[in-house]
Design a protein around this nucleic acid. Sequence first.
RNA 1: GCUGGUGUGGCGAAAUGGCAGACGCACGGGACUCAAAAUCCCGCGAGGGCAACUUCAUGUGGGUUCGACUCCCACCACCAGCACCA
Length: 809
Amino acid sequence: MDFNYDKSIDDKWRKLWEEKKTYKFDKNSDKPKYYLLEMFSYPSGSKLHMGHWWNYSLPDSFGRMKRMQGYNVFQPVGFDAFGLPAENYAIKTGIHPKDSTQKNIETMEEQLKQLGATYDWDYEIKTNEEEYYKWTQWVFLKLYEKGLAYRKDAPVNYCPHCQTVLANEQASGGECERCHTKVEHKHLTQWFFKITDYAERLLDGLKDIDWPEKTKRIQTNWIGKNTGAKVVFDIEGHDEKIEVFTTRVDTLMGVTYVVLAPENKLVDIITTPQQKEVVEKYRQDVLHLSEIDRTSTVREKTGAFTGAYAIHPLTKTHVPVYISDYVLESYGTGAVMAVPAHDERDYAFANKFGLEIKRVIKNPNGDETLPFTDAGVLVNSGEFDGLSSQDAKEKIVKKLESKGAGEKTTTYRLRDWLVSRQRYWGAPIPVVYCEHCGIVPVPESELPVRLPYNVDFKPTGKSPLYYCDEFVNTTCPKCHGKAKRETDTLDTFVCSSWYYLRYLDPHNSKMPFDKKVTDKFMPVDKYVGGVEHAAMHLLYSRFVYKALSDMGYVSGQEPFKSLIHQGTILGADGQKMSKSLGNTVSADEYVAKFGSDVFRTYLGFGFSYTEGGPWSDDGILAINKFFQKIAKVFENFYNLKENDNKNIDEELEVWLNKTIKSVTADMENFQFNTSIARLMELTSAIAKYQQNNQINYSQEKYTVEAYAKLLAPLMPHYMEDVWQKLGHSASIFDESWPTYDEAKTLTKNVEIAIQVNGQIRARINIPADSGEDDMKKFALETETVQKYIDGKTIRKIICIKNRLVNIVI
RNA sequence: GCUGGUGUGGCGAAAUGGCAGACGCACGGGACUCAAAAUCCCGCGAGGGCAACUUCAUGUGGGUUCGACUCCCACCACCAGCACCA
């Protein structure tokens, strides 16, 4: 294969675009705005990989179409530059994170330019720069002022390998998201964001946004709203009370014991002297369990008796109080009422500890097996006998309310967002600890709290900043006495939770962003990124946006109006591409061989954008060939002399109109593969027409120009060049997107199918848009149809315009 | 376990409930050529038939409908998210 696409065209146009500032973003334009955003990247050391190309090139094509459709498209680029890899690299090599990050960014910038995207580099942001993280700290301070950032001693997920605390979201499954080391439990004093305050609104807002259902479901599950009841148990011999949360208050009369989480504060108070030793031993055992072991569903139930008894709020029966690690301190109230007859966990526990099992719900089908966890009819429940589970829930809650012993309530699985990291390469938390004043936020005027350059990166479990005296020792902004700085840094997800705002006003030194600008351009109209961020970045950003909105800094409730997840391009073996599997494929190689336009078009053609798939370059030669055919079409036109032939070729006209229609619709939906298929058809149609001698010059000119515009988003360098050769001096991307005439999307005659009882029996050509009567007539006249209907009674004839006729006999 | 998603030729894949397999790859045949490459044309789900044609086909089994890849129910397989969440 020796095409021939001249790659110097790419270089030529990249240079010209830069010189002419073709992609200069004008925030004052009065065209309608379109904010197109791809999730920014972490600046890793290697060159742009397939995933980057996939994530950035095709959305750029989409953006180019939008631009041609008359929108003022804002499509920025930048780097999520803080984070662990750079620091781990520093520990290994001694190269400072700032230096390695800077170098990596430079490499990636060069590479991104190769892509030929419409970025305006004046709007680039790098989250590790003071100019940016100063305002990340500002976001922290605002949340703090609003009571949404707080410090507490908490059991945290700790990764012994990365030597840092992890957010709940980064430790799911009991493993460190990054290195898959088993996460340990530690008690540390940490900063949290109160995302739980927004649980309901985060759930509610999902209704109004155009996001994939899958993603909404992940967030919904993660927030985990659950409605039920709070029930209060008195404790024998104590003033304290035990509050439990249950979704099955209908089973209240079946409670035979109560279980507290081992960490529950009541445990110390209520444990009897005789049981102290057992209880303490159990608590120690639990503490040493890894997250994985503790949450394993197959592990046998364990626990200890506290010696205390709780008093049932309705029956006044005294039931024993246990502790067990199957009750989680962080969910609900950290205590449950145990109904072994109707809950599998309680059942297993009761069996192990020889506790009473009392059936209070009858299985409607008469089955006596326990545990029975579905709804049914109440028995052994005194005044509630005979009620359905549903009715009983209402009645029992009412009864509890009247006694002040319970109420309807809602809980969420969502936990507060842990933002402290015992790491160097992040934005310092802008707080000092003063001997007199306690926790003092650094005033806005003193931001940024600068990250010092000279630190020792040895991993100790504490932030390297902890050992940096010049950083730690400071004076209190309030009383000017001696104070120490917080040495933890912010989770990088804090940086990325508001970057879409800074993009719009990246060099503002007075404020994080100008509301006049963000009001004009927010929300993001189309956000493109991986689904792996569904329960993290995408949730955090929504939270931060809502909080900023509540404080009046931004308008609206949701930052990302419409979201698309790009699929993943896997290695040829169907596994995720990774260096260790040796299945990575370099984009560079292909770009060097075929040029970036061919490569981009191939990516668009070979895979579904939202699904991705295993890498294969089987079709790339076909795209190369496609470019060749395109070249020929334009060559033919350049050689065509103006003529006075007046014959309009209607077939070509139809081809063009229907291609414009479907390409526009498919590109809009990120269906690049079908757009390209339609463009291939149009290419063949034009080529065929050009072989014909009856050529009308102005029709062909019109056709090839529209054709160039349709191709332009996918092969920007090439079509820009063609456009110039066609005699235009302006950029093709300043031209308007072709429009079509619906009436011209159909040929004069269409082929329709004729079915008899749903089976296709014939195909006939009839005039387009024939009415039902004509369709019936044509169908019944058809010879091959006759033999199927001969002598039969026709019960019904169904006609679908331009498609088919179905005769039911 | 729970909740989703996916399942279509040899392969990548298309199909507002309306002609399944668009567009490509691979393959086969032909034209051009001394020959090859490139290019162009034709064929290409499976079975049966010289043929016109015909039967069967969208994971499996049912259902709704004049008509189902598409909607409903059950099942199987794979993938993903969550998982002792009371």
